[in-house]
């Protein structure tokens, strides 16, 4: 969430993709920085900066100055590029805006009953929309003023 909040575009990569697919995604998206928790190997050649998780990542945060989030960021701005599984050809980077992802989270909140003291066990991988959407919804969930909820989404429905 921090990457798009900073006005940057997050590219969550599938940890089960092969190097060829990962290289394609990095080059296709023109990614500048790769945050990675394993040996980057030849992926390092595709980007300007590789930051290893956890050590280099934690060091970067320790040395960083806090920056205000959301400055000059609009809800129609691109927030993330999600590369598809590529079952019908080359993987495609699906362009999702802040509004797209937050609308998804609202939808989750209206369809998955939650209480303030609930704990959500994240089983799905966070690089996948199914994993990230639930987390975004849970972090956003109870704190969003209800007046922000889109009126077009029903609170409950049945077939």
């Amino acid at each position: 969430m921090g990457v798009p909040a900073a006005g940057l575009v997050v590219v969550p990569l599938n940890t089960r993709h092969a190097v060829t697919e990962l290289k394609y995604a990095l080059e296709d998206s023109q990614t500048k920085v790769l945050l990675i928790d394993r040996d980057p190997g030849e992926l390092a050649d595709c980007v300007n900066h590789v930051i290893l998780i956890p050590d280099a990542y934690d060091a970067m945060l320790s040395a960083a100055q806090e920056r205000e989030l959301g400055v000059d960021v609009r809800e129609s701005d691109l927030a993330g590029l999600f590369y598809t599984g590529g079952t019908t050809g080359k993987s495609r980077g699906v362009m999702l805006s802040h509004r797209n992802l937050i609308a998804n989270a609202f939808h989750y909140m209206t369809t998955v009953p939650q209480r303030e003291d609930d704990l959500m066990l994240v089983m799905a991988p966070l690089f996948h929309a199914a994993g990230s959407n639930g987390v975004i919804a849970n972090i956003s969930g109870h704190w969003e003023p209800r007046s922000h909820w889109p009126r077009s989404i029903p609170r409950s429905h049945s077939i």
Partner: peptide
């Protein structure tokens, strides 16, 4: 690091 608005940052990591 010198990134500008809209620049891409990829993440390849376990949860």
């Amino acid at each position: 690091l010198g990134l500008d608005k809209g620049d891409r940052v990829a993440i390849l990591a376990s949860n």
